[in-house]
Design a protein around this nucleic acid. Structure first.
Lengths: 342, 342
DNA sequence: CTGAAAGCGCTTACAG
DNA sequence: CTGAAAGCGCTTACAG
């Protein structure tokens, strides 16, 4: 009835209740092998009966380490990052490590605010997909002894470990797929090059094009990577048509927008123009035509990053994990010419 | 070079550096109006120069309150919950309140583990979408003085505040839409009734059916609510056919699976069978046919819940916010007969 | 195997 | 307006 906020029960309460010292209570939690079986039983029973839950702040303050992990993503509402978080969560919760979440929305100020908030919680480690190209705040935390693992991005200076994706490889495989199908004039609807992986994907596409004859890539750099931005890209794509016969996109959302815009303009996919996305989002196989795309496994990235963070050794061998995205061929690409090599 | 984990700078370091007391440092952070302008300046400058960041554990331990908010969702990887988290995050980050995230995956044990982890962090409050129908752990936390706001669910006993969605209303509007279009034999592919809102939606569908003549609802209760489960439901739906002319689903993912299964079986949507989803997921407008569905705004739920949690008063008036989902009519429902009322 | 004591870094009355 | 002191709830050597 009353909103009596009863005082929380502490380790002293437990100790008093059964006539042992506070140290013994602490030991049965943290070093049970030091405590006699009978004593341990009594402590455990009392903790259960009184509803004891350890005060994490006191523990962290005293021991100097906490078990919470900070995760900084670009956008919590984006399903890819949701998958990454879920992957992290699955390994962290096994070890009973709480997760602190921040979303930078690609704003460096928001990012550094989130990181310094992690810092003041003295997190055990940070998993971060940084926006700030300089990685300054992360390097500082690392220098101060906090473990850091970069997500979906490598450290150019090679000091911070990372779990990233070979974006250039993924984008190149999309480009090769389309070139293989006989396309020669290709548009690439990309996000801003200030986003590291957009730049990598651009490089991948260009590499693939350079490795083939007569291929030309027309890159269109958009501000965002939403379906709306994809629709906005369509007039520019059509300005390039009819020469352009294939459109590559930096993600499935852009591809969705391009598809919608193309259909609205009476352009048929893949009959008139072929289309390739990136992400293999949940809907990619469901739209019509089914979208050819490139898959990267967000949960796996999250799991590997969390394991890397929690590994005792963090040896340099495993320190730069690189996932290879794979092409998922579906119905949105049309073969233009017979294979050149029979 | 060296992995020297330099000791973190503390408020004592700041105090010593400029010859003031620790209390003055603390005051310039927490009660700046008590500190002379000149002193304040010196403290601030020193903090900046030395790279001071407050130790949250010490602060929480001493003051007895922390600012971190625990958020417990059913599944971080589900876009709806991603939206909710984003909404929470947007108001929490304004107030510089860190977010602790837990994902129960609808398992009561995982849920109570996450909650007790929140508990030991002495969170300022908890936003939770509980799986445990008894709400026991949440009531305990509430009794102990922790603020609790239920997400997407009401407290039957009326003591815990909540921000929920009128699921019955949403489901009823989907059913009415289809009845209005002339359908009389309706399948409802639902999740488990142990999930509170699945039960509510079931009630809403039945209510709508009861309000019309000759309408029969065949509910199919699945274990999960993924696209895979939706595909698995198709044989059972077809067992009901050809009588059934419309299929309602508890979410868009199920609808997606049903759609896929139906197409694979050569059933045309909406020509042979009409289909309605729930959520208005990002892909709903993009699939073919565009999915008629019911929209609930996850970000708004998150924002309202966070505001409710942080409100100083938490008066009883605003304490049970209820969002009304709205029907989004698109192409997946076919009108069977002319309107009955001209 | 158990206990007494110190101390982590803050905030908060309380004096002055 | 500023400082000295206590204390939040733990963990951790250290004695015994």
């Amino acid at each position: 009835m009353s909103r009596s906020r009863e005082r929380r029960v502490t380790s002293v309460d437990i100790a008093r209740a059964i006539g042992v010292s506070q140290a013994t209570v602490s030991n049965t939690i943290n070093r049970p092998e030091l405590v006699a079986e009978a004593t341990r039983e009594r402590v455990l029973t009392a903790m259960d009966r009184l509803g004891y839950v350890v005060n994490g702040s006191a523990r962290t303050l005293r021991s100097g380490v906490s078990s919470t992990i900070g995760v900084l993503v670009l956008d919590v509402a984006n399903p890819f990052w949701g998958d990454v978080i879920k992957g992290v969560e699955s390994v962290a919760s096994e070890a009973a490590f709480p997760l602190l979440i921040g979303s930078s929305n690609e704003d460096p100020d928001t990012e550094s605010a989130a990181l310094s908030s992690f810092d003041s919680q003295t997190v055990r480690g940070v998993l971060a997909a940084p926006t700030d190209p300089g990685l300054r705040p992360l390097r500082q935390m690392h220098a101060r002894g906090t473990r850091v693992v970069l997500l979906d991005r490598e450290d150019p200076e090679g000091v911070l470990p990372s779990v990233s994706v070979d974006h250039a490889h993924g984008a190149a495989s999309a480009a090769r797929h389309v070139i293989e199908a006989g396309h020669r004039e290709i548009a690439f609807v990309n996000g801003s090059h200030r986003v590291a992986w957009c730049a990598s994907r651009s490089a991948g596409v260009r590499d693939a094009a350079a490795g083939a004859d007569d291929v030309r890539v027309h890159e269109i750099e958009m501000r965002g990577m939403s379906a709306e931005e994809g629709m906005r890209a369509v007039p520019r794509v059509r300005g390039l048509a009819p020469r352009v016969t294939a459109v590559l996109c930096a993600n499935d959302m852009l591809a969705l927008g391009v598809l919608k815009g193309l259909i609205a303009a009476g352009v048929r996919v893949p009959d008139d123009v072929s289309l390739v996305g990136y992400d293999d989002s949940i809907f990619a196989s469901m739209i019509s035509p089914a979208l050819t795309t490139v898959r990267q496994d967000g949960q796996e990235i999250g799991r590997r990053a969390a394991r890397l963070l929690l590994a005792d050794d963090q040896g340099r061998e495993t320190t730069r994990a690189l996932q290879r995205p794979e092409l998922v061929a579906r119905g949105s690409v049309r073969r233009l010419s017979p294979r050149r090599n029979p």
